[in-house]
Structure formats: C-alpha cells, structure tokens
C-alpha cells in the first residue's frame, strides 16, 4: 500500500490547488494597486500594499459592516446554543414520547427553502417594527440554525456516560442540577462545535439579510459586499479587500478546528 501512496498525494495536491487557487487570486487582488486590479495580462506580483483596504475602510465603511455581522452572528450563536442545549438535553436524556418525530421535524426545518419563509417572516417583522434591526435578523437565523445545534448537541449528549449524571442524581442534585453541574462542563467541546457552525451560517447568510436590512447602517457584510457599487466602475479592488476581511476569520476557524467542523457536519448530515 505504501508504494502506491504518491498518486493519491498528487491528487490531494491538485484538489488543494483547485480549492484554494480562485480564492487566493481574490486575496492577491486585494493587495494590488488600483491600476493593477483589472490589468491584462494579469499582474502576478501585487504592488498596492494596503491601499485597497484603506479605501474599503474609508469609502465603503467596511468597519460597520463587520460590526453588524459580528453582532448578528454573535447574537445568533448565543441564543441558538442556549435554546438548543436545553432542547438537546431533553431529547438525549429525558423520557419524551415521540422523540423520533421531534428530531425528524427539526431536521425538516433545516431543509426549508428561505423563499417559503421569507414573505410571512417579512410581514411578521414588519408588523412588529423589527425590520432593519439586528434582532429582526437574529430571529430567522436562530430558527434556521436551531435544528443544526440541536442535532449536534443531542448526538454529543448521548455519548456522555450516564453514570456521571446518576452519581449527581444520587447526590440529590435533581435533573436540572445534573445538567448544569455535570453535563454542561463536559459538553464544552460539543457546544463549541455547534457554535462554530452556527456562527459560520449566520456570518454568511444573505437572503434574509437582503430583505430585512435595507438600511446601510445595519447591513451585514454579505449584503455590503453584494451591493457595493462605485460611482464609476465596479470597484473590484475594494470588493476583493472586503471579501478577504469577511473570509479570513472563517478560514482561520477552518484551519484551527477542521476536525470539529467535520464531526459536526457529519452529526448533522450522516446521522440524519
């Protein structure tokens, strides 16, 4: 087997290159000077330094898109995990009739097309005065990420040894006490995995953000990047810079926690 390893390594190299090259081109572009961005033949060695980043910050107001995204994605993650943890514990450990149905119903929600929810959610938010607010966007995000969080956490909780809780129960803790004192401290890694995936979802979402956030001051990064217009031509350089800023945190997450992400995705998918 060892002898045959190199063609596979070569294939893996090609896969890497194809996966990374287009994005690398965008990152490279973001370090060019304004004149180099659309040059043909393409300029391979960027000579703009941080010029385009400065321009994206000043002309495009990149920072407030980043802040809005952090706020919305952060808020979604906290709320989704809080609600999801309780639900997952109940589903994993407590005696519930119709458990498979509940799990199935949740899975179904994660498959709902956005368009089927958009009109009603938009009308509900409008009548509640929540359009153009961070909370108004967090509500649909929590809804759509809850199934993922619950599935990941349920599979994680089911794998924790029951004996630990039973000991706590014998100590007179009660179920809730056992959850808070014994299970949660152990559930850190599972919750972290769910948090990463929920955060990535909320950071990247575009459809609801486009409908709900029409005010510039509350728009998130994807909306900003999709609608960024120049007065003269397409500002590709600034788009590249903003895109890099939007993506670098995710790339870091992926390289640091790829094992967790993969296991989280499999919990959501394989066991579905």
């Amino acid at each position: 087997m060892k002898r045959r390893a190199w063609p596979w390594a070569l294939a893996a190299g090609a896969i890497c290159a194809l996966s990374l090259a287009p994005f690398a081109w965008l990152v490279l572009t973001s370090f060019k000077s304004a004149g180099q961005v659309t040059a043909i033949p393409p300029v391979l060695w960027p000579g703009g330094g941080l010029e385009l980043y400065r321009s994206a910050l000043s002309r495009f107001g990149l920072m407030h898109f980043v802040l809005n995204s952090l706020l919305v994605a952060g808020g979604t993650t906290v709320i989704s995990l809080t609600l999801g943890t309780g639900a997952a514990y109940a589903l994993a450990r407590l005696d519930l009739p119709g458990r498979p149905w509940l799990m199935g119903a949740l899975l179904l929600v994660s498959m709902f097309p956005q368009i089927s929810l958009a009109g009603p959610i938009w009308r509900m938010l409008q009548s509640a005065g929540l359009l153009n607010t961070h909370l108004g966007l967090i509500i649909p995000y929590v809804t759509l990420t809850l199934p993922l969080a619950v599935w990941i956490l349920t599979s994680y909780f089911s794998e924790l040894p029951r004996e630990l809780e039973e000991a706590a129960l014998l100590d007179g803790c009660g179920r809730l006490g056992a959850l808070v004192r014994v299970v949660l401290p152990l559930a850190g890694p599972g919750m972290f995995t769910a948090a990463i995936l929920v955060f990535i979802y909320a950071w990247n979402e575009f459809f609801f953000a486009l409908l709900i956030m029409t005010r510039r001051s509350v728009q998130t990064l994807p909306v900003g990047i999709a609608l960024f217009q120049g007065q003269y031509t397409m500002p590709w350089g600034e788009i590249a810079a903003a895109s890099t800023v939007a993506t670098v945190p995710l790339v870091l997450l992926v390289f640091l926690f790829q094992r967790r992400i993969v296991s989280g995705l499999s919990a959501g998918a394989i066991k579905g």
Binding site: I15, C16, S19, L20, P22, F23, W25, L26, I200, W203, N204, F206, L221, P222, V223, I225, A226, I239, S243, A246, T247, L250, V251, L253, V254, F255, Q258, I261, V262
Partner: peptide, 18 residues
C-alpha cells in the same frame, strides 16, 4: 482536509463576486 473546507466556509456572496 482544511484546504478543502475553505470553499465551503467562504460566504456564498464572496464566492459569487469572486
């Protein structure tokens, strides 16, 4: 494996503009 995950993690809007 991490490299392969990068396109998945990139915001779709960014991938589209790219």
């Amino acid at each position: 494996r991490a490299a392969v995950l990068v396109p998945w993690a990139i915001p779709t809007v960014v991938a589209s503009q790219m």
